[in-house]
Design a protein around this nucleic acid. Structure first.
Lengths: 194, 194
DNA sequence: CTTAATTGAGACATACATGTCCCAAAATAG
DNA sequence: CTATTTTGGGACATGTATGTCTCAATTAAG
């Protein structure tokens, strides 16, 4: 268990729950001296940045491992969700680290990934597994939000780890599918935007 | 424009985007001197706490204004979502303020609200507007995640403010509804949990 | 066993944010 | 216009986290 990776894992876990956690807390969680941590990462920001970039790369590897050729877009999304959800504790911190979110390199990578997801969404629309009337931006937001929900639900124990990915996937697919007929009742109580 | 409220609004907007923002930043955003801010709120934590408790109260007022008697549970949820989504900028900060999340009073109020939402979910299951096979915890997580997604989407401009609530509601309803038949193709690629 | 390298603990200076205080300028009241 | 209150800006002390450094203990290597 290399210290460096160990520290990054601890940082991910701590920062997910407290964005402003001190280096001391992170070192303690990693079971390592504070000075040792500084030997691997010159500054706190270097550590967070490394963690962020590392996370992007890990997601890249995971998604690129999905062979789009032999799968429908819907199946590809299922695969991606299934891969990313278990990695939650490493990425959840990204949601609220303003220092990193403005880093040019991270920003570029993050936007590229959202774009890839957007392309997948468009492919799903094309193949009919997603409602064409839903904007791609909202579809992407929904997918990301449900992945995040899966992470937090696993974290607080309300959802079993092994169920989380399938649950998130089913919910996003159904939520974004075209509606054939109104199964229940209302849901159409939409007044004109006065 | 009373300064006190003005400060709380600024704090909500700033803290949503940067949980660790300094009092100076918040005062600047509010167009007020730092000393003036301290005249209203003795400590930074008092301010954040006030903001949090204020937000809870505001949500309470909004939800209690929904007359459950004359509505189905589904319609009640639609109303609640429609009320809460426009208030996004005031509450979004709550997602990541560990200091406040551990405050007993806030914790109690927050849990009570989640519980009320859970009861609404159960009512929807009973009336058939939600899949009984979906755990209530996951349904609540989904609803909260999509409200959050609506907030951020409005914030980054990818969704129009007036569309956000309806979009979130439609997505959560469809996502959590019982599936009558598999409209597309797979979505049922669930192996036995090996 | 001896040597070299790595580690954890702590001292230390520094930077930054908090919270207090004071005062002159501006707004408000009379 | 004058008196009172409120405000903004800045000086100030304090606390806490950062980043550097030293050193003794542990570990690994020979």
């Amino acid at each position: 268990m290399p210290s460096r990776q160990n520290i990054l894992n601890a940082a991910g876990a701590i920062l997910a729950r407290n964005p402003g956690a001190s280096v001391a807390e992170i070192a303690a969680k990693a079971g390592v001296g504070r000075a040792t941590l500084y030997r691997f990462f010159p500054t706190r920001n270097d550590m967070v940045r490394t963690l962020a970039l590392d996370s992007l790369r890990q997601i890249d590897e995971a998604t690129q491992a999905v062979s789009y050729e032999s799968l429908t877009a819907e199946q590809a999304l299922a695969q991606i969700v299934k891969i990313i959800v278990p990695l939650g504790d490493r990425f959840r911190f990204l949601a609220n680290e303003p220092a990193v979110l403005n880093d040019p390199e991270f920003k570029a990578g993050s936007e590229r990934q959202s774009l890839e997801l957007a392309e997948l969404v468009e492919a799903m629309k094309a193949e009919g597994s997603m409602d064409q009337a839903v904007s791609t931006a909202w579809a992407v937001a929904t997918i990301e939000a449900l992945i995040y929900a899966a992470w937090t639900s696993v974290d607080d124990g309300s959802v079993a780890r092994r169920d989380a990915a399938a649950l998130a996937f089913r919910t996003m697919i159904k939520g974004l599918q075209a509606q054939e007929s109104g199964p229940t009742s209302s849901a159409k109580t939409r007044e004109k935007t006065a």
